[in-house]
Design a binder for these strands. Structure first.
Lengths: 146, 146
DNA sequence: TTTGGATAGTTGCACAAACAACTATATGCC
DNA sequence: GGCATATAGTTGTTTGTGCAACTATCCAAA
């Protein structure tokens, strides 16, 4: 029997990711409350564009851990909202480079502040060493399954 | 500045819950591979019915951390699949008691085994003490935000 | 140079989530 | 009894996800 054998009652919340769902909901509420008309999923795309503007949809797939159709539709909606635009690559016409609009650039500071605030609320009273261990475990889980 | 202040680069995967998404995808693939025609969300409803058959939709909302419309539709689909049936409560006709069919009872052992196997794969090589700390942290996160 | 395979992106479909607005039933209070 | 209010559940709409099938473009080898 593997040493990580799980007791029945402990299995559920690990699989369902209750904690990350709670974080996402809190963040969404804060976005709404701040008048940011933005879903968490859209924000996750902008997050990577703020780090590297003009990357392709394929690169957004890898970065956000989503499949191609999901990114197609997120970019569709971001484009409708006037936050990004698709520009066909000069070198390879299969590729769309995704560029932030000025409007999207304005959202960076505020939304990142809200995200950080949310995480601080989530991790309030938690020993920083335990947070570090938790992050390590989640990273190994991800690496084990990807 | 709170002692849990997050560095930018660390913020993203905590918020997006990459690890639990990876777990859910792996579990879904295993269900599909085993010929279980069942989504993870449907399984999460059955999970609670296996523990307490005949509970109401409202109780399923609390147990699965979902809102009422989500449960309505999950029960719709489970009912279509012949896995549960709605029975109006005798005492209070507003309430639907949700009962497992024989077909659903047969799925318990196999699907729980697969779930446990998935978690063991996810947590392979992780020190059990660290898993314990990780579970604690995630529980506190949940309690902080709920 | 043509052709076959790989890569980038899109579309259709089924399922699920969040929110608001709705129906039906129960309950408590006058 | 009758009305206000709370509770259980449903429905409509928008958004997102996963899968399969599709188009367009690129590239490399015959």
């Amino acid at each position: 029997m593997p040493n990580n054998h799980f007791k029945r009652g402990e299995l559920y919340s690990f699989i369902t990711g209750k904690a990350s769902i709670a974080i996402a909901r809190r963040l969404q509420k804060k976005f709404n409350g701040a008048g940011l008309n933005l879903t968490i999923e859209q924000w996750s795309v902008l997050y990577h564009l703020w780090k590297a503007d003009g990357i392709s949809q394929q690169e957004l797939c890898k970065a956000t851990f989503r499949d191609k159709p999901s990114i197609t539709r997120l970019v569709d909606n971001l484009e409708k909202a006037g936050l990004v635009k698709r520009v066909a690559s000069e070198n390879d016409r299969r590729i769309n480079c995704i560029y932030l609009t000025k409007q999207a650039q304005k959202l960076q500071q505020q939304s990142m502040d809200i995200a950080e605030e949310t995480l601080n609320e989530a991790l309030d009273t938690v020993d920083p060493e335990k947070i570090e261990i938790c992050k390590q475990v989640l990273q190994v889980v991800y690496d084990n399954l990807k």
